[in-house]
């Protein structure tokens, strides 16, 4: 089929508009982070014309950011690994194993997605307090290593893997654990990447729970740290944006890496995407 040049131009115009809309908040953030405070509200808003790098230095010095980054990294890696592993295991059980009450249980787990977080906030806090876990990494990680959404994602993906692959392995004498680890997981790179990126972004951006269960500055993750610039009486926009740019970089990197794996996963799994 021959491509119509006009159509191609229109498609690209549409794509460019979409890209601009997605990039706009980032441009605004970067531009603001490089402005002196006095010209905060003055145009241009999206193209940096000032280069006040001292904002970054000042923001970095305003709070113990290396520690915040470390805490965020530990929390995010813990949650991402946990959610991916446990959700894959649960998703596999719901997709392949036969046990009484399986579907009821699955829908109950799905149903928990409809309960808003503030409802479970205080009960969860009480459990953590009873365990003596306040202000620890356990409190930041353990309550969040399962995710109903990720379980759903894995179950749906596993259902699309042909039964025949597993039956062949069964005949060769493999048990469930071997099948899961050696056959199913290697085929599941795309869904693992998808689930991991959701977990990563959730964990990296989470604010309220880490704030509630930590009391010392040493235990706080980056998002809580950013609140240092959002005062009760005024927001230090240039510093806040400089710190936010720094806090956003790992998330953007994670997205780029996972996106690549995502595409690789589809092309190499031998399944029709």
């Amino acid at each position: 089929m021959k491509t119509n040049p006009l159509r191609s131009v229109l498609t690209h115009l549409l794509l460019l508009t979409g890209a601009f809309i997605s990039a706009m908040p980032f441009l605004w953030m970067v531009t603001t982070s490089l402005k002196p405070a006095g010209v905060l509200y003055q145009a241009p808003l999206l193209i940096p014309t000032y280069f006040e790098w001292s904002n970054y230095v000042e923001a970095w010095k305003a709070a113990p950011f290396p520690r915040f980054f470390l805490n965020s990294a530990i929390m995010t890696i813990g949650i991402t690994l946990g959610q991916t592993l446990f959700s894959a295991m649960a998703g596999y059980a719901f997709a392949r194993l036969r046990f009484p009450g399986r579907d009821v249980l699955f829908f109950l787990i799905l149903g928990t997605m409809m309960i808003p977080f503030p409802v479970t906030l205080i009960p969860s806090f009480l459990i953590i307090a009873d365990l003596g876990w306040l202000d620890t990494y356990q409190a930041l990680i353990v309550p969040r290593v399962v995710s109903a959404f990720a379980i759903f994602l894995f179950r749906q993906f596993f259902l699309s893997i042909p039964q025949e692959l597993e039956e062949a392995a069964l005949i060769d004498g493999a048990n469930r654990v071997v099948i899961f680890a050696r056959i199913i997981l290697p085929l599941s790179t795309p869904v693992m990447a998808a689930s991991a990126i959701f977990s990563f972004l959730f964990a990296w951006n989470d604010f309220l729970w880490p704030l509630i269960v930590t009391n010392s500055t040493e235990m706080r993750p980056i998002q809580v740290g950013l609140a240092f610039f959002q005062g009760q009486y005024g927001i230090f926009w240039t510093l806040l944006m400089a710190a936010t740019v720094l806090a956003t970089i790992p998330a953007i990197l994670a997205f780029l890496v996972a996106q690549q794996r995502f595409i690789e996963g589809i092309t190499s799994s031998g399944l029709k995407g």
């Binding site: 906030l121 806090f125 009480l126 307090a129 306040l134 704030l211 509630i212 010392s216 500055t217 959002q230």
Partner: peptide
């Protein structure tokens, strides 16, 4: 030990702390 809590969340944090009997010795509030 002075602990900074973002102003927008101080009341939520005090609320959970009161429910969990994990209150600080003293605090301020708007």
């Amino acid at each position: 030990e002075a602990v900074f809590v973002p102003g927008s969340e101080l009341v939520s944090k005090l609320q959970t702390a009161i429910a969990g009997r994990q209150t600080p010795t003293m605090a301020i509030s708007d």
